[in-house]
Nucleic acid binder design. Structure first.
Lengths: 98, 98
DNA sequence: TGACTAGCTTTGATGCACAAAGTGCTTTAT
DNA sequence: ATAAAGCACTTTGTGCATCAAAGCTAGTCA
């Protein structure tokens, strides 16, 4: 049995992994919160977010806080399923090693 | 708290992750067994193995089976520690998301 | 008006993953 | 003896991903 065959390619990036983790825990997270919690540059974050969005793992909501623009992100059903699948694969791998 | 800050960069590759898993479970694994279990080309495997070796995570043993050459790999203390640290970080992240 | 924030996009450099082919050595088959 | 095949690489080349930095647009606050 191959211990790694069910790992999701999209989640090999620590940043995308972090984004998904944050979005599993929080209903909505703003661009700036993601940026500071994951400690990345805005450009870098934006590009990872757009890959996740292209794969329909997350969705974007452009809104306001007071009169300031505020973009938030949330996980989709598809994304949740993909992420849980990945976690299951990781857990299987961890069990495998014990 | 950043959920991904303790993840090990070397273990972002599924192949290196797979090699380490195999070596956690088995005292020694041959080149060909790794190759077939992880389903990779020999060149690709060799290059990942050499990265792991450069980082002292694994060590090589060149021997024989009968009269045929047989190279096996095993995990080092350093590698075991690094891998366990990575697994702990993954587990923390998984817990974080639940 | 002038500085500042938010959220991107673009650019460009660097590095990595991977397949494929080549290599040197040995074994096994004919 | 010669050919074929296996083992364990190394080399080469391509394409892709990561990332920082800079640029950009639109709005905000002083």
């Amino acid at each position: 049995m191959n211990p790694i065959e069910h790992l999701n390619k999209l989640f090999e990036s620590r940043i995308r992994l972090g984004v998904m983790s944050m979005l599993m825990v929080n209903e909505e997270v703003s661009f700036n919160d993601l940026k500071s919690m994951l400690d990345v540059t805005d450009g870098n974050l934006a590009s990872h977010l757009s890959t996740l969005e292209e794969n329909a793992y997350i969705k974007v909501h452009k809104g306001f806080v007071g009169r300031k623009t505020n973009t938030t992100y949330s996980i989709t059903k598809v994304g949740e399923k993909a992420f849980k699948g990945h976690l299951a694969a990781l857990e299987a791998m961890i069990k495998f090693t014990q």
